[in-house]
Simulated assay, not measured.
Amino acid sequence: MDTIKNAANYVAESVQGAGATASKEANKNVAKDSNASLSTRAQAAGDAIGDKVDEQTHNRKADVHKEASKH
């Protein structure tokens, strides 16, 4: 039963990590957009940093669940 739970958690964390990656990339593009206001670009850059942290956190958790499901 724990294997199934770990596998489900792996999938959930992988999906959340992918979502954070997509959000990070979108925010990076806004931060680089010279047509956007300076405050918008600064906010997007800050959001991209937060998304990067989320991405790494979810990916680490996914790896832990993946390894746990093997045992």
Rank of each mutant, 00 (worst) to 15 (best):
M1K: 15
T3V: 10
T3A: 11
I4G: 08
K5G: 00
A7K: 03
A8P: 03
N9G: 04
Y10F: 11
V11K: 11
A12T: 12
V15H: 06
Q16L: 09
Q16E: 08
A18G: 12
G19K: 07
G19Y: 02
G19P: 01
A20T: 05
A22P: 00
S23A: 09
S23Y: 02
K24R: 04
K24Y: 00
E25G: 04
A26P: 05
N27E: 02
K28Y: 00
N29A: 06
N29T: 01
V30F: 08
V30P: 06
A31V: 06
A31I: 03
A31S: 09
K32I: 06
K32N: 09
K32T: 06
K32S: 07
N35R: 10
N35T: 13
A36S: 13
S37Q: 10
S37C: 12
L38T: 13
T40K: 11
T40I: 11
A42V: 12
Q43R: 10
A44G: 06
A48F: 04
I49R: 02
I49E: 06
G50I: 06
G50N: 10
D51W: 02
K52N: 11
V53G: 02
V53T: 13
V53W: 11
D54P: 05
D54K: 05
E55V: 05
Q56I: 15
Q56M: 15
T57P: 01
H58Y: 12
R60Q: 14
K61P: 02
A62R: 01
A62L: 08
D63S: 15
V64K: 14
V64P: 01
H65K: 14
K66F: 10
K66S: 09
E67G: 11
A68C: 07
A68F: 09
A68R: 08
S69T: 04
K70Y: 01
H71T: 08
